[in-house]
Simulated scan of single mutants.
Amino acid sequence: MLNKTLVPQSVAREIQTMIQTGQLKAGEKIPSQREFSQKFGISRASLREALLTLETLGLLKTEAGRGTFVAGSGDRNQANHMAPWRYSDSYSAFDVFQTRILLEGEIARLSAGRLTQLQLENMEAATRVMEQSWDNQDLLANVEADLQFHKTIVSACSNAMLKALYQTVRDQLTETQRQPIPITDPERMTHSIAEHRRIIAALRANDAQAARSEMEAHIRNTARCAGLSP
């Protein structure tokens, strides 16, 4: 049994490993939340968060009245097959992508010239992890590295209110980084990684306008991958 202090992301990683190693097979119904929460030693709320993350990444699928199942490769590769948007009661995915363009574009502009050499190197490392984990189909590691990349830029922003605004809507913003994963083809991921490197280059050169422009283009392209054009 896993330590009870593990966060939902750690449990999601354990379940992803179970899927990758065949302990949970494609099309198989996963154990009940009660059974799974006992196995991992976490609350059902934490387990639900882990399962929602895996569903957003296309590793699990929920069928009304039947339960949650391991998605097969056909499910994961099916065109336009994304999990339901989790925040539809408050904001549409379109609204969130539009907000990301405005907010993260300006944050990138204000972060130019403020990132340390170590932070820039960490962003480069995160981008390499994104690339390697995509090749290995470690989807959780891919997204975690993506989140770390963007989080580092936010941490260097000179405007405390913008940073606070980002934190207020962080869950919705980061969900847009997970949402398109099931329908992201290798070419799009290659472009996304190249976009990250252009953002790093602009920030390293202290080119505020280029940093904003590259960030806005990156988020727009991610939105297009999700079938949206904000």
Results as ranks from 00 to 15, higher is better:
residue 97 F to M: 01
residue 77 N to W: 14
residue 123 M to I: 11
residue 117 Q to W: 02
residue 217 A to V: 15
residue 77 N to D: 13
residue 148 Q to C: 00
residue 76 R to V: 07
residue 114 R to K: 15
residue 202 A to G: 14
residue 138 D to W: 09
residue 170 R to A: 15
residue 57 L to A: 07
residue 22 G to I: 13
residue 219 I to F: 10
residue 29 K to C: 11
residue 172 Q to M: 14
residue 44 R to P: 01
residue 71 A to T: 11
residue 124 E to N: 13
residue 212 R to N: 07
residue 117 Q to V: 13
residue 143 V to F: 04
residue 72 G to T: 14
residue 19 I to K: 04
residue 28 E to W: 01
residue 151 K to L: 14
residue 59 L to Y: 01
residue 115 L to C: 13
residue 222 T to W: 07
residue 34 R to Y: 14
residue 109 R to V: 03
residue 194 A to G: 06
residue 162 L to Y: 11
residue 162 L to C: 10
residue 159 N to P: 00
residue 18 M to D: 15
residue 168 T to L: 15
residue 28 E to M: 07
residue 187 E to I: 13
residue 65 G to L: 04
residue 221 N to R: 09
residue 62 T to Y: 02
residue 143 V to A: 06
residue 207 D to F: 08
residue 82 M to Y: 05
residue 94 F to W: 11
residue 221 N to I: 03
residue 29 K to A: 15
residue 21 T to Y: 03
residue 38 Q to F: 03
residue 156 A to R: 02
residue 225 C to L: 07
residue 226 A to V: 06
residue 15 I to L: 09
residue 122 N to V: 02
residue 8 P to N: 11
residue 58 G to N: 00
residue 106 E to L: 14
residue 126 A to M: 06
residue 171 D to N: 12
residue 173 L to F: 10
residue 141 A to Q: 10
residue 121 E to N: 10
residue 20 Q to S: 13
residue 140 L to M: 05
residue 209 Q to G: 09
residue 219 I to A: 03
residue 137 Q to K: 12
residue 94 F to A: 13
residue 97 F to V: 02
residue 200 I to P: 02
residue 120 L to F: 05
residue 129 V to D: 08
residue 124 E to M: 15
residue 51 L to K: 04
residue 90 S to N: 09
residue 81 H to I: 03
residue 28 E to C: 11
residue 149 F to P: 00
residue 95 D to Q: 14
residue 125 A to P: 07
residue 50 A to R: 06
residue 62 T to Q: 10
residue 104 E to V: 12
residue 197 R to L: 10
residue 216 E to C: 05
residue 215 M to I: 00
residue 170 R to F: 05
residue 75 D to T: 03
residue 172 Q to K: 06
residue 172 Q to D: 10
residue 179 Q to M: 06
residue 230 P to S: 01
residue 97 F to P: 01
residue 164 A to L: 12
residue 26 A to R: 04
residue 179 Q to N: 09
residue 26 A to H: 13
residue 19 I to V: 15
residue 182 P to H: 02
residue 23 Q to P: 00
residue 54 L to M: 14
residue 215 M to E: 04
residue 10 S to I: 08
residue 7 V to R: 15
residue 179 Q to F: 11
residue 183 I to L: 09
residue 211 A to Q: 04
residue 189 M to W: 13
residue 157 C to D: 07
residue 69 F to Y: 12
